[in-house]
Write a protein that binds this DNA or RNA. Structure first.
Lengths: 335, 335
DNA sequence: TGAGTCTATTGTAATCGATTTCAAGTCATG
DNA sequence: CATGACTTGAAATCGATTACAATAGACTCA
C-alpha cells in the first residue's frame, strides 16, 4: 500500500498539496494537479480512511442494530437504510442483536467510541450503555429509532400509526361479521405492540365486543403464532377470526389452522401485520397492514444525517402512512 | 471524550504505561496499575479504535456482502457469521449488494483500503476490484466465499455438495414414481446452480428419463418460481413434479399451482432447496435440502480468521454435510 | 514606472490518539 | 560493585488533514 507520502514524493510536491487534490481541487494549479493525479494513478494510491477519520473525527459510517435479521420485515427496512446511506456516502454497519442481548451494547460501543457517526436501532429499547449519551445530548445525540415510537424513548423516530392500523384491521373483521376475535400480540414491552393493542381494544369497545376478545401475548415469531393459535382453537367458544401482530405469526396461525384440520378463511379468518414479501404468496394470501418499510429505512437515515449535520436539533417523530391490504385470508364467518 | 493523555495525566504516569495497562498487564507494578485503573474509571475513558487501528494496521472488522438480505437463506448464514465473528472479537460490516451491483465494489474498497481485515462474500462472483489482490496474494488474500464453490474462483470457500444434493432430490422424485420432472434452476452463472444442474441430469440419465426433463432458468426469487411454474403447467405433457433450486422459488411454485386450481402434492409434487425457516410452515410443508446455514457462516469466519492469522496459507474448500428433509409437498403422482 | 496590496499557490509543521522502540532508572542479588 | 530483572518514560510512528507562513505574480494607483 502506498501512502500520501509516496504520492507526494513521486509528484515532487508536499503532502498538503496531495491532500488538497484529494479533497477539493481548489487552490491547485492545473500543472500540479496533473502531476499529482499522474502519481496517484501510477501508484494505485487509495487514501487510508483510518488516518483520515482519526484526523477529521468523522467516520462516514452508520450503525444499524436489528432484533432479528431473519425477519423479512427488518430486511426490507434495512434495504431502505442501505440505499439512503450509500447515496449519502455512508457505509452501514449492520448488527444482528436478537439472540445475544449483550451484543447490542457492543455495537453501541462503536458509537460511543466514535467509530461511527450515528446509530439506528430497530428494537424497542435503547441500549443501556447509551443512556448517558442520550441524557447528556438529548435530541442532538445521533441516534434514531425505526418503527418503535414511544414517548419514554427520548429519541427521534420514524414509524406508522400503529394504533390506527390495528383499529382498522379490527374494524374490517367486525364489518365482515366476526364477533369473537382472537388477538396475538407481540412482546408487550414494545411500544408498537402496546399501541396496536390499544387500537384493538378501542375497536372492540366501539363495537361492543370487548367481552368476546381473547388476547394472547406473542413474540412475533412463526412458532409462537402457531402455538397461540392452537390455544385459541382449543377454546370452548373459539374465535372466528385471529389478528396477529406480525405476518410471521400469521403464517404460524395458518399452519396451526391447517394442522387442526380446519381451513382459512372458511373456518377461521386470519389477519397479519407488516405485509412482508411472502404475504402475497402464502396459502391463503394474507390480509395485512402494509408498512412502508423501504420508506421507513430511508427516512430514518435522512433524520439521522440531519442530526449529524446539526440541521435537526429537536426530537422529531415522523409518522408515515400505512395501507390496508385485503387478500384471501379474511372473509365472513360461516353462518 | 477523554483520551489516553488525560488518563496519563490524571494518573501521573506516561501514556506508554497507560497503554500497557490497557493491552497487557505485564511489566506494570500493582501500585501504578491501581492508579491507572482508577483514572480510567473516573474519566470513563474508552480507547479510540481509529487511533489504535491506524497504529496497529488491524481493524478487527470483517466485511460480509450478501446478494439479498431479504432472502432467509442468507439471513441464517449471516447469523452464524456474526456469532463466530463476535466471539472472536470481530465486528461485522454487512453489505447488501443485490440491487445496486456497483456497491459490492464499494465494500470491497473497504478491504483494499485496509478498513477491514477480511471479507466474506456470499454471491458467486468476486468483486472485480479485488481481482488484483487475489492475483497477487493468492490463497493468503483474506477473502472467503460462502456457498458458491467454483474452481475458477480461486479463493477458499465453505459449501455443501450441491451436485449430490440435487441428485438425491431427483432420485427421491423418481423413486416416488415421477417420470416427467420440471426443474427451475438459479442463475446459471452461479456455480452452485451449475453443480445442481449436473446432479439433476446425472440422476435423469441414470433413470433413463433425460428426455422427460424440462429445465427452466430461474433466479431464486419467489416471483420467478411462480412464473416458471405457470409455464410448466401450460405444457402439453406437463410434469408431475417440480424441483426448484431454492425454497423461495418453491413457495412461488406452490402459489402458481394453487392459482391454477391444482393441488400440491396431489396434482403436482414440489421440492425446494435450502430449508429456510418457513419451509416447515408452508402449505403444504416443503420437501427440501437442508443446508447447514449456521455452520456455513461459522466455518467461513473460522477459515477467514485462519487466513488473517497466517495459519491458513493454501486454498481450502470445505464441504459440509447436507440433509434431505421429506415433508408434505412431495408424494407419488396420481395414477 | 514603482511601491503597495491582494490573491493564488505551495510548503512546513502541528495534530488526531493510540502503540511501541529504546533508553534510563531502580532494586535486589551474588 | 557488577549484573540482570523489572518498571517506567521520552519520543517516534501510523497516514492523513489543516492552520499558518511564505512566495510569486497580478493588479491598483499616484
Amino acid at each position: 500500500m502506498s501512502t500520501i507520502n509516496d504520492v507526494a514524493k513521486l509528484a515532487g510536491v508536499s503532502t498538503a498539496t496531495v491532500s488538497r487534490v484529494l479533497n477539493d481541487y481548489a487552490h491547485v494549479s492545473p500543472a500540479v494537479l496533473d502531476k499529482v493525479m499522474g502519481a496517484i494513478d501510477q501508484l494505485g494510491y487509495e487514501p487510508n480512511q483510518m488516518a483520515k477519520n482519526l484526523r477529521t473525527l468523522k467516520t462516514s459510517r452508520l450503525i444499524v442494530t436489528v432484533p432479528n435479521i431473519a425477519n423479512a420485515f427488518f430486511a426490507h427496512i434495512i434495504r431502505g437504510v442501505e440505499e439512503a446511506a450509500l447515496a449519502a456516502g455512508y457505509t452501514v454497519l449492520l448488527g444482528d442483536v436478537g439472540f445475544h442481548g449483550t451484543s447490542e451494547d457492543a455495537y453501541a460501543g462503536l458509537l460511543r467510541r466514535k467509530e461511527a457517526d450515528g446509530m439506528i436501532f430497530l428494537g424497542h429499547t435503547l441500549p443501556v450503555s447509551l443512556n448517558d449519551l442520550v441524557a447528556k445530548k438529548g435530541a442532538s445525540a445521533p441516534i434514531v429509532n425505526g418503527c418503535e415510537f414511544s414517548d419514554s424513548l427520548s429519541v427521534s423516530s420514524v414509524h406508522i400509526d400503529n394504533a390506527l392500523a390495528a383499529r382498522q384491521i379490527m374494524d374490517h373483521l367486525y364489518a365482515l361479521g366476526h364477533h369473537r376475535i382472537g388477538v396475538i400480540t407481540g412482546d408487550l414491552r414494545s411500544p408498537i405492540s402496546r399501541d396496536r393493542l390499544q387500537g384493538v381494544t378501542a375497536s372492540a369497545d366501539q363495537h361492543g365486543r370487548s367481552n368476546d376478545l381473547t388476547i394472547l401475548t406473542g413474540d412475533y415469531s412463526i412458532e409462537c403464532g402457531a402455538t397461540m393459535t392452537a390455544q385459541l382453537l382449543a377454546q370452548s367458544r373459539r374465535p372466528t377470526a385471529i389478528f396477529c401482530f406480525s405476518d410471521d405469526m400469521a403464517f404460524g396461525a395458518l399452519h396451526a389452522i391447517r394442522a387442526a384440520g380446519l381451513s382459512c378463511p372458511a373456518d377461521m379468518s386470519v389477519a397479519g401485520f407488516d405485509d412482508v414479501h411472502l404475504s402475497r404468496f402464502s396459502a391463503p394470501s394474507l390480509t395485512t397492514v402494509r408498512q412502508p418499510m423501504h420508506e421507513i429505512g430511508r427516512k430514518t437515515v435522512e433524520l439521522l444525517l440531519g442530526i449529524i449535520d446539526g440541521g435537526v436539533t429537536e426530537r422529531v417523530n415522523i409518522t408515515l402512512d400505512h395501507e390496508l391490504v385485503f387478500r384471501e385470508s379474511t372473509a365472513a364467518p360461516k353462518a
